[in-house]
Design a protein around this nucleic acid. Structure first.
Length: 469
DNA sequence: AAAAAAC
């Protein structure tokens, strides 16, 4: 079967051919005809399955007829992270090159005015992260009543990130006549509830996971006797030197560790740059561009880069820290060995990581990881790296149990909160942030005091997993 | 023991 058989028009077929694609992937085969017929689609698929094109192609075809009006976009794509949103925008550019569709990318960290100017001119395709989209909406710069097609990408990740109330709200701002294309790698109950509520008789399309890690990825670990970061960094350098690395991603659990490791590697003469959510968006974009083009060899990353990012051809993945959740390990190592290529991964494991490492072994094949001996001639420095270990990091408040209302507790704990030691980050300083944190605290309080069965305002009955951790 | 997302 080829793209010609899916019902796509000649101009699109031309763009697909020019991009070098010949055969549609399973999700494209199944989803494109349904979407072209105007049906809602529920796609259960992971990244790497060709899911982005399965919604951009039919959208371009549908939107090629008609014109956008000022401040009333005709379609909307929601993505969980800025990088993923930008990637969807690239996809529209690639396949829409022979159409004159207008497009706007609404993500945080970049100029508001430019985005607003585009909205004023009218856009066919709006691609956004939920926060910035609602920001524009609340300022009255945007109407969602003209939405013909709405796409939710990586819905289960949005759930993890606490975006579901926002998604629900955005759904309610769009007309019920819209076509909805909804994608998620898994279907936890809360996602099921959303699809039951907002999708109309969807075509349910489930595709197999892309080839599992074990086959093309060589997984190895390095055991260290200490968790001291300076020793871990020395071990990392040894690894980088002994391997023939074309390019590699080095994952750390904390943003502060990402910064320290990247700085340290640079100091030792390695071509490395950090990427995580506290860095300026321009820097994030630039770093990713350099990494994709080959100008940058080592990307030191938080889990912002673990999922979904389309970076073809990474030869190595290094886990500087053992990820706390086993599924993150799978996502991290999945950055290499893509499209049948060979990939190599290494992870530094210290005695303190035993519990998390065991959980990972249970998730993947137990015999899949090979241990490697590395000589490290560096003495552990325990006191070093205050930031890297999160000392002085602002703690999330723990509301007391008791009969006080959630609101009263919030006010009390707001006052009791100690001054943060380090400077507030970009996100933490946001004016509306307390709203979401209040919600989280209220839900957390209800849960802890055993009232979890009561419906939770704004989140439905389900308390997202990240609130319970 | 975390990260992600809004001037």
């Amino acid at each position: 079967m080829s793209f010609e058989d899916l019902g796509l028009e000649p101009t699109l077929l031309k763009a697909i051919a020019e991009a070098g694609y010949e055969t549609p992937t399973p999700i494209q085969k199944a989803a494109i005809p349904e979407a072209l017929a105007g049906r809602d689609v529920l796609g259960i698929a992971q990244t790497g399955t060709g899911k982005t094109a399965s919604f951009t192609l039919p959208m371009i075809q549908r939107l090629s007829k008609g014109r956008a009006r000022a401040r009333m976009p005709r379609s909307l794509v929601l993505a969980p992270t800025r990088e993923l949103a930008a990637q969807v925008a690239d996809n529209f550019e690639k396949y829409g090159k022979h159409h004159k569709l207008s497009m706007a990318l609404l993500i945080g960290g970049v100029s508001f005015a430019d985005q607003d100017a585009k909205l004023t001119r009218g856009v066919d395709v709006l691609i956004a992260t939920p926060g910035r989209l609602l920001d524009h909406f609340e300022r009255g710069r945007l109407l969602l009543t003209g939405i013909e097609v709405m796409v939710v990408d990586e819905a289960d990740r949005m759930l993890d990130m606490g975006f579901i109330p926002d998604i629900e709200r955005i759904f309610k701002l769009t007309p019920i006549t819209r076509q909805t294309l909804f994608f998620s790698a898994t279907m936890p109950p809360e996602i099921q509830r959303i699809t039951d509520m907002f999708l109309h008789r969807p075509a349910r399309i489930e595709v197999a996971k892309p080839a599992t890690a074990a086959s093309t990825i060589a997984q190895r670990i390095v055991r260290l006797e200490t968790k001291a970061d300076n020793v871990k960094r020395a071990a990392l350098r040894k690894l980088l030197d002994r391997e023939d690395v074309k390019n590699g991603i080095i994952f750390c659990n904390r943003k502060a560790t990402v910064d320290v490791v990247a700085k340290s590697l640079q100091k030792h003469g390695y071509n490395a740059r950090p990427i995580h959510g506290d860095l300026a968006q321009a820097f994030r974009t630039e770093t990713l561009d350099k990494f994709r083009s080959g100008e940058l060899k080592f990307l030191v990353a938080s889990d912002v880069a673990a999922r979904g990012l389309d970076i073809p051809d990474v030869s190595h993945v290094f886990n500087f820290d053992v990820p706390i959740h086993a599924e993150d390990y799978v996502h991290r190592i999945g950055r290499t060995g893509r499209a049948g290529r060979q990939g190599a991964t290494f992870m530094i494991v210290t005695p303190a990581d035993a519990k998390y490492y065991d959980a990972i072994l249970k998730t993947i094949r137990v015999d899949a990881i090979e241990a490697l001996d590395i000589e490290v001639d560096v003495e552990p420095r325990e006191r070093e790296g205050r930031l890297a270990r999160g000392v002085g990091r602002r703690r999330r408040d723990r509301p007391d149990r008791g009969e006080k209302s959630g609101r009263a507790q919030n006010r009390r704990s707001e006052r009791a909160r100690p001054e943060p030691i380090r400077q507030e980050s970009e996100q933490e300083a946001r004016a509306a942030e307390p709203r979401r944190r209040d919600e989280a605290r209220r839900n957390g309080a209800a849960r802890r005091s055993g009232q979890a069965k009561e419906a939770v305002v704004g989140l439905g009955d389900h308390v997202p997993a990240f609130l319970l951790r």
